[in-house]
Simulated scan of single mutants.
Amino acid sequence: MKVESVKAELDEYIKKNTSVITSGVYSDEVQLDKYCKKVSQIKGKYPQFHKVFGRVVQGFKAEWQALGEMQFKAKVLQNFRQKVNLEIIVDEIYNTWLSDLKIEGKTPEEQPISKVIIAELLEKVIDDISDLSIIGDRDGGKADGEFGYSLNGIAKVLSIAQVNTKNPLFTISLNTPTSLNILEEFKDFERSVPSKVRKKVKRIFCSENVRLMHQDSFIEKYGDHTGFNDSRLNVTETYKWEIVGLDNLPDNVIFSTVEDNMLKLVDVIDNPPLITQTQIQDYVLKIFMEFHLGYDFAINELIFLADFGGVKKTGLNNEDLNKLYYSMEQLND
């Protein structure tokens, strides 16, 4: 099969199946994406605002007495332009395709080579995004020409928020979890989340190693009890939050947030994921793909992150902001 024929078939398939590219790149098969709210028209930087009220209710007196203030807080969200430059040696993929057709008992019409190429490409893109969503680090290396540095994954996003003094996250001082203390540390974490927002928290995120450590400790403590069942293994003891083990998340990262605060930043309106062109060079077929992607939190003050260094107190570590956001929590004592 000539490379020109494959290119022609591939171009036709891409033209007729643009939605396959978009749904593939922004697939829910990426583990983190299952827990993110999708913000769908962001290209580059995007200002995000939220408002905070001080106390407004007071006893009646027949005169004007201003109380409370509406404050607008701003945060800049950002996604990053990504690309895929894939080279395909047509002879190699053609022989594999013919073998697969024989094994699966299908005809070329039922399983065209163009469909196979796109399916395998998207499978790899999803795999890469799954890793980048956690470990990506724009400051760690060169964004273009290498893997790992094209966007900030959630671990990097948390580390940036950790040193943000204008919009600080909420730190929770804990001991480093071990198999001996992990159940108590998770309880302390739950109970340290401000009471005003606890009902809006559904999950606690940690590494898969830490999740398994919690599970093993839970079984060791309660496994012989008559009321024990597997449904209790991956929820916290106090508020029954789901414990989510994120692949590749560092073991020293444990965090929660309210529903819809963790964001996946995409652009499906003006710049949806596209295979922009294909080219032939010698025996090689080149595929060019582009899309925009990023991860962040809408409001840093609603991120609850375990701190094992003992340097920061539980809270926003800012007296005025503690009073503004969590006035009932006695965080400045």
Rank of each mutant, 00 (worst) to 15 (best):
S19C: 01
S231L: 03
K286D: 11
F189H: 11
I103A: 05
L101F: 09
D11P: 01
R232H: 04
V90I: 15
D307G: 02
K200G: 06
G227A: 10
T18R: 01
I88Y: 10
T178F: 14
A66E: 15
F228A: 02
N164I: 04
D33T: 12
G310Y: 06
I243D: 07
E259N: 07
Q65P: 02
T176I: 14
V125W: 11
I117R: 01
M289C: 08
Y26A: 01
K124I: 10
L324C: 02
M213C: 00
F291I: 12
K16P: 00
I182E: 12
A8D: 08
D131M: 14
V25D: 03
Q48S: 09
D260M: 09
D270V: 09
P47L: 01
S114E: 01
F205R: 08
Q65C: 03
V210K: 14
D333E: 11
T257L: 08
E9K: 10
V193W: 04
K124L: 08
T18D: 00
Q48F: 14
L174M: 04
I93G: 01
V25Y: 07
V25I: 07
K73T: 00
S192E: 05
L183F: 11
G59C: 02
F49A: 03
L122Y: 05
D251K: 11
T176W: 13
I219A: 04
V235S: 03
K83M: 14
V311A: 10
A62P: 08
K7H: 03
V52Q: 04
S99E: 10
I254T: 10
E104T: 09
A161N: 08
L158E: 07
G310C: 02
L158N: 03
T165Q: 12
I42F: 04
V76M: 03
K313E: 06
F53H: 07
G44F: 10
Y283K: 12
E4K: 02
E123M: 10
L169W: 14
M70A: 11
Q281D: 11
V84E: 02
G140W: 15
N248Q: 13
V253W: 14
S327G: 06
K51T: 15
D267M: 02
K75I: 00
D320A: 10
